[in-house]
Design a protein around this nucleic acid. Structure first.
Length: 287
DNA sequence: CCCCCAAATGAT
DNA sequence: ATCATTTGGGGG
């Protein structure tokens, strides 16, 4: 299977139109030819289509209340059963918990003032800010997802000038894209290595969407630290210890002894941690 | 690998 | 409306 791309697809811009689901699929913007949600419960959802099939959808433009899938009679298309938080619905929940963007495509059959007249239109990136269960118009439970539009360029710390040449935009999009995806797959990997247990306290949190942990960079990414997005610069932490680590609440010695907290960092053999990054963290974040 | 699904599509 | 066909993806 081709790698799932989160965020914009290189060379595709907001407002681009597609004749039908097949051309949309070939563009990589939304790969499934029928399903409304593209994603997996492990990685999250990379794109959704609004096609007007679900009566509990609400399209307010920059805010969308999107109904999960399932529970419909294949012939009548009516809700005939409760939806459950699994498969693609779970994928959207993963986006919410991990702050992953989802591409939104509106189809002409979706009846709203924001729908295109014909075919399908790529409408940019949204974040999943909340999800909940509700009794839908049919009387059966549906899962709803609140999507809010994000300004990609600003949220990534880039200011793409209106008059920038196309080639520059393209290159930048590609570079940003590759970075997001590489970093995200490593995030999944470090969590899997520790099976979502915090390396500091061994806590394993669970939610209605499964287990929850955070991947923490030892030497921070970006300005001015320029830490790399590599496995040897990542830790699997619970949210509390992630916050403490980022804000210098504790340090980690070269032998993994914790400074400021009792005990030692749990480290698996398949996870080589670069001690230079531990040193960098000690030097720059200790009181 | 096989099986099944899916907010589609095109023809009756 | 309904039917058959289609295609990519996900999961076991």
């Amino acid at each position: 299977m081709a790698e799932r791309i989160f965020g914009h697809i290189p060379n595709v811009y907001e407002g681009d139109n597609f004749e039908n689901r097949l051309t949309l699929s070939h563009s990589k913007v939304h790969r499934p030819t029928q399903a409304g949600i593209s994603g997996s419960q492990k990685e999250g959802a990379d794109s959704i289509v609004l096609s007007g099939g679900y009566e509990d959808d609400q399209d307010l433009g920059d805010v969308i209340i999107y109904t999960g899938h399932g529970g419909r009679d294949p012939d009548s298309k009516k809700q005939v059963a409760n939806q459950i938080l699994s498969d693609k619905n779970l994928a959207l929940a993963i986006n919410c918990q991990n702050g992953l963007p989802v591409r939104v495509i509106r189809g002409a059959s979706h009846k709203s003032q924001f729908s295109p007249e014909f075919g399908y239109r790529y409408d940019g990136l949204y974040k999943v800010v909340k999800y909940w269960k509700k009794k839908g118009k049919s009387g059966f439970n549906v899962w709803l997802f609140r999507l809010e539009k994000i300004d990609t360029d600003k949220s990534l710390g880039f200011e793409v000038k209106e008059d920038a040449p196309e080639y520059a935009k393209t290159t930048r999009t590609t570079v940003i894209q590759q970075r997001i995806n590489r970093d995200y797959s490593l995030t999944i990997r470090v969590k899997e290595i520790y099976n979502f247990h915090c390396q500091v306290c061994n806590t394993k949190l669970f939610t209605n969407a499964g287990f929850y942990a955070e991947a923490a960079h030892i030497k921070p990414l970006g300005e001015p630290h320029h830490g790399p997005d590599t496995l040897d610069n990542l830790l699997c932490l619970c949210p509390n210890h992630h916050v403490m680590f980022d804000f210098g609440g504790f340090m980690i010695d070269d032998d993994f002894t914790l400074v400021g907290l009792d005990g030692k960092l749990t480290v698996k053999p398949e996870h080589q941690i670069n001690k230079d990054f531990l040193r960098y963290h000690r030097e720059h974040f200790t009181i």
